[in-house]
Design a protein around this nucleic acid. Structure first.
Ligand code: ZN
Ligand code: ZN
Ligand code: ZN
Ligand code: ZN
Lengths: 125, 125
DNA sequence: ACAGTTATGTTATAATGTATCGCGTCCGCA
DNA sequence: TGCGGACGCGATACATTATAACATAACTGT
């Protein structure tokens, strides 16, 4: 897995956005003047996910830079506000869940994602 | 929220499948002889999710009947096999996670989904 | 019966994601 | 230094997934 200008560019855009970004937003903004072919964008994003620098948020069809921005493996956990579209990554304590999976036997865990949906503090009025 | 033939039909198909079903599979099979308009299918599926009788599996763009098949609210938790496409709903112990969300304050939780990815017992050879 | 709400039908279109093929570039190795 | 394989990128076309918008029908309570 190499570190390339495309991937750096994608990560830069994710970080600058500071939140979830849709693939087709990058299709529009990847290069300053004009469009980029979708496969180019998807490949860059997939690489970032593979490298542990970003997460894919399946329920929103979006990608977001990992808040840790080192490539350490961890369960990707997010809080989603139903009202505004705020999304925040947090460190969910998934120890019990992992233990339960181990306890039921036969399943070899590789990765875990967790989505909590509700109302953020700003949207409770 | 009414209980209608469309919704019953959708649930019947999910139950019969016994696993994740894609919306466009239902588009093809919803009525015996021919296609159904996508909005009809999506509306029926959305209603089932709303009623707590099914879950949407975002990472697969698929729907599955809830293993409890009563409408009780609960965290939707699934084990996904990376090799075969087996998916199993299980009861993840998310108490700690919910407590952590409460503890950080300001977020009013409504629903939670959890996806565990790895290899099922049949795929570890 | 009436009005308000909820559900369905229909058409078209938007949004999201991949297959494929060819070419260039990088890296390890002889 | 030359070779060979793996990896990355560009480009085109296409497949899949989901929704907008509007009209009609069915149900519900009064
Ligand atoms: Zn992260
Ligand atoms: Zn909010
Ligand atoms: Zn369930
Ligand atoms: Zn398997």
């Amino acid at each position: 897995m190499r570190w390339t200008p495309q991937r750096e560019r994608a990560l830069e855009l994710l970080l600058r956005a500071g939140g979830p970004v849709k693939a087709y937003d990058l299709v529009a903004t990847f290069q300053p003047g004009g469009q980029t072919a979708p496969p180019t964008v998807y490949r860059a994003l997939d690489a970032l996910v593979e490298l542990g620098l970003a997460h894919r948020i399946a329920s929103r069809n979006a990608y977001v830079a990992c808040h840790r921005h080192d490539g350490e493996a961890h369960a990707a956990s997010f809080l989603f506000c139903d009202c505004c579209d705020a999304v925040e990554e947090f460190e969910a304590p998934v120890g019990e869940v992992m233990a339960a999976i181990k306890a039921r036997g036969g399943f070899q865990l590789r990765a875990m994602t967790l989505e909590a949906h509700g109302r953020c503090s700003r949207c409770q009025d």
